[in-house]
Design a protein around this nucleic acid. Structure first.
Lengths: 162, 162
DNA sequence: CAAAACAAGTTGACATCGTCAACATTCTGT
DNA sequence: ACAGAATGTTGACGATGTCAACTTGTTTTG
């Protein structure tokens, strides 16, 4: 459970998963992770998930669309932003017409952010774009089926949250 | 080969890998990808690969360390930046003492960017940090061995470049 | 060989984007 | 009712990348 907290290069050979990999191969893992993160991240795909939507905006919009009575801070938490940053990204989405802000009836301090029809359209379009990208990549991995790749990535995403 | 170029939601059932997944599951893939990209990307890990190094800086430093006679623009290409942006990120690394610029002897226009000892140290430290993160995540995926996960991610990273 | 075209790198002006701190407004607990 | 806490907004700011114009050095071409 805590075996990695004191270093994963442990040379004692006990409780270490990395024994049979040389340092070079290990380093390759972090490069792969970064490669993937960079490719699908904020700078990848020409810096936009689809026309008119950056990656943080996509994530924010997704959060709004999947959260009933979504507060501004909920968006902030999804992104790891401060409440100030949350306000700003929600405002941007509002200016683009993808969300609207409504005062909550239960709590006057809270803004309920809701996705608009236009927002749903662009969200789905961005989704498609990512899927297309993924499909293209998956095709270049003949040693894996698409289903297997999807399964592992899904498990990994789930592990990130847990 | 070209089956996805006309849409991967094809309903004809021919040449379509997505048949047996509902739309929700498909959408989950792009969410997983984004989850991963966000986690390991520029905003993840507190916005720094390790103390004093952002993700673009890490990538730049890695490029420098693996490219003999690395020109400023080589760094730019690795990141998808303009030559102007490349100049700026190299300058930042230089100011931090992680690289140094030398005029090329073969071509007076070119700056050979070289990593310093201090740069190598921080690069390795950032590497470790990523590895640690990965290890933590991998532990939360009991259905896969670390080796299998590594293998797939490596294949995926390779596919991105190809 | 000289002039034009091209390529590498730098720089000033600028746009974007997120943080910090201070603030207004609205709840909550006692 | 009142102190304290929570939500959200805003001005000032810093970080970061682009664009266009420029300098310098190389290559091509007539």
């Amino acid at each position: 459970m805590e075996k990695h907290s004191t270093g994963y290069f442990g040379s004692d050979g006990i409780n270490c998963d990395w024994n049979d990999m040389e340092k070079a191969a290990i380093s390759a893992i972090s490069r792969s992770l970064i490669e993937i993160a960079w490719y699908f991240g904020p700078q990848g795909l020409n810096g936009e998930c689809c026309e008119n939507l950056t990656l943080p905006e996509f994530i924010a919009l997704d959060k709004v669309s999947t959260t009933p009575h979504c507060a501004v801070q909920d968006v902030g938490h999804a992104l790891g932003f401060t409440k100030s940053g949350a306000t700003r990204i929600v405002n941007r989405l509002e200016k683009k017409g993808y969300v609207q802000k409504l005062k909550s009836h239960e709590d006057g301090r809270i803004c309920c952010v809701e996705i608009t029809k236009s927002g749903e359209r662009v969200l789905s379009s961005a989704d498609s774009r990512y899927l297309e990208q993924f499909h293209t990549i998956a095709e270049k991995m003949p040693e894996y089926t698409v289903a297997d790749t999807v399964k592992l990535l899904t498990a990994m995403a789930k592990a990130l949250k847990g």
